[in-house]
């Protein structure tokens, strides 16, 4: 029997344990690290970071959030889908958008109040780590045109199961009509 090595994920979570006093519990940070790991190595997201404080109010966020840049567009609003079809624009030609990710565990419970507080604490677009990456080649982003952000605030609900499976759901703030996949 050799020495049992912790898994790569466990080692990663241990290594990314935050130092100092943070407004959220440490297990939520471990969860955030696990989701970040999953996004980075399973879904090829880039420019990932963990947010602990609200971007526009002094209050800390309810839970640590992850933000990052997916390799392709995660969410396409149904109206935009129609316009893209009309103008025969391929989905890969539309630049991807930075997304908010909320790490949760399957056994958690959430309430309307928590969702409302969380949405009130974030901007529609997550702030990028380095400003350079934000300067994408500008697609014709007239308001309401293809490539412009639509549908109000949204975040990806990342839920970790006991077997380390992570599932991602889009949660919109307000009434946003569903996509026609």
């Amino acid at each position: 029997m050799g020495d049992l090595q912790p898994s790569a994920l466990t080692a990663y979570i241990e290594a990314s344990r935050p130092v100092g006093v943070l407004p959220q519990d440490s297990h939520h940070h471990a969860l955030a690290a696990q989701v970040l790991h999953n996004l980075q190595y399973q879904h090829d997201w880039t420019d990932l970071r963990i947010h602990t404080d609200s971007s526009h109010s002094a209050r800390p966020l309810l839970k640590p959030l992850v933000s990052g840049l997916p390799p392709h567009r995660i969410y396409v609003h149904p109206d935009e889908q129609i316009e893209m079809l009309k103008q025969s624009v391929q989905e890969k030609d539309v630049p991807s958008e930075r997304e908010w990710v909320l790490p949760t565990h399957l056994r958690e419970t959430w309430s309307l109040r928590k969702f409302a507080e969380l949405f009130d604490g974030i901007d529609p677009v997550p702030p990028a780590e380095n400003q350079a990456s934000e300067e994408k080649p500008p697609f014709p982003t007239a308001k309401g045109g293809i490539g412009s952000r639509r549908g109000g605030k949204r975040l990806m609900l990342a839920t970790v199961g006991d077997d380390s499976t992570v599932v991602y759901y889009v949660v919109h703030d307000g009434i946003v009509k569903p996509r026609q996949n």
Binding site: V171, H172, G174
Partner: peptide, 8 residues
């Protein structure tokens, strides 16, 4: 207040 959930 309302929130909509869709599979990503």
């Amino acid at each position: 207040r309302t929130f909509c959930v869709e599979w990503s």
